[in-house]
Simulated assay, not measured.
Amino acid sequence: MSSNSSSGSSSPKMITHHVSEVVESNITLLDLFREGASEKLILQRLIVAGLLPTHSDDRKKHMTALATHFQKLDRQLRREFMFDRVTGLLLLFPTCLLHVVESSRDVLLSVLRNMQHLVESDLLEGSKVVLLIHDPLRRIFQQWSYKMMYVEQRPHDADADDEEENTDSLVSTVLEALEKLDEHLQESNGDVLPGTVLDEVQHLCVPPEVIHQLLERDMLLSAEEHLELYDSPIVLDLDAGMGPLSLSDNII
Rank of each mutant, 00 (worst) to 15 (best):
V192K: 15
S104L: 04
M148Q: 13
K13W: 14
E39F: 03
I133F: 02
C96S: 15
M148V: 08
L32E: 14
E228F: 02
S121D: 09
L181V: 03
I133Y: 07
R79A: 07
R217S: 15
T167H: 05
L227R: 06
D182N: 15
V107A: 05
E165G: 04
S222V: 05
E152R: 11
K40I: 03
K40P: 00
S11P: 08
E179Q: 04
D199M: 10
E179T: 05
E39R: 13
I211R: 11
L43R: 02
H184G: 00
Q186Y: 01
A37L: 01
A240K: 10
H69T: 10
A160D: 09
V119E: 09
Q71N: 11
I133D: 07
V171W: 11
R138M: 04
E80I: 03
L175W: 01
E225H: 09
R34L: 12
T95A: 09
D249Y: 07
V101R: 02
S11L: 14
V130Q: 05
V119K: 02
S145G: 13
P155V: 08
M14F: 08
R105N: 04
K72V: 00
I47T: 14
S20M: 08
V119R: 03
A160Q: 05
F81K: 02
K40W: 00
E176W: 00
L227F: 07
Q213P: 05
M149A: 07
T28G: 06
V171G: 08
R105M: 01
E24K: 15
C205P: 00
W144C: 03
N166W: 01
D74V: 05
F70G: 00
S9V: 15
L92I: 07
L112W: 07
E120A: 09
R85Q: 07
H226A: 13
L108E: 12
R78D: 06
R85E: 11
